[in-house]
């Protein structure tokens, strides 16, 4: 068990070190998400009333779309450097490779959110620095990286990779996206845990189901 965690961390850390050096994924995710937010502040005539109504939706739609570009990038790097083959040659089981890669992607999207969410609070004039927000963001990012890592690994060899990943990823994460938007909307309207409990439970169920199934199924993807 301890050994497995060490392997997962080693793979995640490898991606993280690479990212610290070239900053490609985090910058592209955060930049894309911020642009979505800014464009929406122009597209919608924002005021106190409708910021609470549309804000949560815009935030999570932005992060979902930006997340897709980041996931694409993360796996493209592995392919360009042929490091995926090297990883597969290593004497470790496939589910650990999956969990390691998912950990890396989780960290990228989480760091991007640390940049995006405060700026969202400024642009939409909403209070988001609450524990609820942390829980929502963690659960959503966990689900995004669980599903995203699986699909990104699947679509690396597809001709139109940039198109294929969002087409696969977005419909599958819709329930999670609904949960994130609805609970954020409860939060900005000043309601607390009990109101968003059902949504958070849904997010937890989604995360658990997809982490377990993906780890289990990942061996079929990297099989050759």
């Amino acid at each position: 068990m301890k050994g497995s965690l060490a392997i997962i961390w080693a793979i995640g850390r490898k991606d993280l070190l690479l990212e610290i050096r070239n900053k490609e994924v985090v910058v592209s995710v955060a930049g894309f998400a911020l642009l979505v937010l800014v464009i929406f502040t122009f597209a919608i005539d924002l005021n106190q009333g409708n910021a609470k109504l549309v804000g949560p939706g815009v935030l999570w739609a932005g992060i979902a779309f930006a997340g897709v570009t980041g996931l694409n990038r993360a796996f493209a790097l592995e392919v360009e450097n042929s490091t995926l083959e090297a990883l597969m040659l290593a004497p470790i089981s496939r589910d650990l490779i999956y969990l390691g890669k998912a950990l890396g992607n989780f960290l990228f999207i989480a760091v991007a959110q640390i940049i995006v969410i405060p700026l969202f609070a400024v642009l939409f004039n909403l209070i988001v620095f609450r524990w609820e927000m942390l829980a929502i963001a963690l659960l959503t990012t966990l689900g995004f990286s669980a599903v995203g890592t699986l699909f990104a690994a699947m679509s690396v060899r597809v001709r139109a990779r940039e198109v294929m990943l969002p087409l696969l990823f977005l419909p599958v994460v819709t329930p999670l996206l609904m949960a994130a938007v609805e609970s954020t909307s409860h939060m900005v309207n000043g309601r607390s845990w009990s109101d968003m409990a059902q949504w958070l439970q849904l997010a937890v169920a989604f995360d658990v189901a997809f982490i377990v199934v993906s780890a289990f199924i990942f061996q079929h993807i990297l099989e050759d």
Partner: peptide, 13 residues
Amino acid sequence: IDTPIIYFAANLW
């Protein structure tokens, strides 16, 4: 696997 989760979420929504 996603089908029941989607239905549950859509229902809540």
